[in-house]
């Protein structure tokens, strides 16, 4: 199991539920396009239909078929994405991470400002900040708690593509070319990749 690359995404309930799910799907689809075995799913114990509640979404990428598909959570994430920077105060977002992990934050603040709120920041080898809201338009934002459903007509139309684009700096398991190819918001994915502030620690 150790060679399965785990990504955990933190989102805010209802307002980011769908975008968070889309992020897992475009990450998985892009790795799938690169010939990997993938899994993308939402945490089932979280409560997606309460506004603002922290939610977890997961991706797994592997060179071999993923055997244990039914576990409820990623226990050992190497990459963590937080879709809203205030989540750093509410939870141990690096839960389960080993030393050398990567954090991607949606924030207009600088990496140093964010790191102040992360007591276990020595686990990180890299932090990536990107202001996805700037790239983000309200168009297509779905306030419907879309539990379990997928908007298949336009996966990755909003900020998910921007953040996933930025996350490409954090791992070889995600390539920006494939990510752009599978996202509906192609400009956003590119912009996220280009405008990301990357800080090695």
């Amino acid at each position: 199991m150790s060679d399965v690359y785990e990504i955990t995404i933190w989102a805010r309930g209802v307002v980011q539920d769908m975008e968070g799910r889309h992020m897992t799907l475009i990450m998985a689809s892009s790795a799938d396009k690169d010939g990997k075995f993938v899994q993308a799913w939402d945490d089932y114990a979280d409560l997606p239909d309460r506004v603002g509640v922290p939610l977890r979404k997961y991706v797994r990428i592997s060179d071999e078929e993923i055997e244990m598909r039914y576990e409820y959570e990623n226990k050992n994430p190497s990459l963590v994405v937080i879709m809203d920077d205030t989540i750093v105060k509410g939870l141990n977002i690096l839960w389960g991470m080993d030393k050398g992990g990567v954090l991607v934050v949606n924030s207009k603040r600088s990496p140093d400002e964010i790191l102040k709120f992360i007591p276990n920041k020595d686990l990180l080898s890299k932090i990536i900040c990107v202001d996805a809201e700037e790239e983000f338009s309200m168009e297509g934002l779905d306030f419907m708690g879309s539990e379990g459903g997928v908007e298949v007509s336009a996966v990755g139309a909003g900020i998910s593509a921007v953040l996933a684009g930025a996350a490409c700096h954090g791992t070889d398991n995600l390539t920006i070319d494939s990510l752009v190819a599978v996202s509906a918001n192609k400009e956003g994915a590119k912009a996220g990749y280009e405008s990301a502030v990357v800080k090695d620690l």
Partner: peptide
């Protein structure tokens, strides 16, 4: 994030 205090920091959402 304008405030230092008010940190809850649970290990898990529930």
């Amino acid at each position: 994030l304008e405030f230092k205090g008010g940190v809850v920091r649970l290990e898990k959402p529930f």
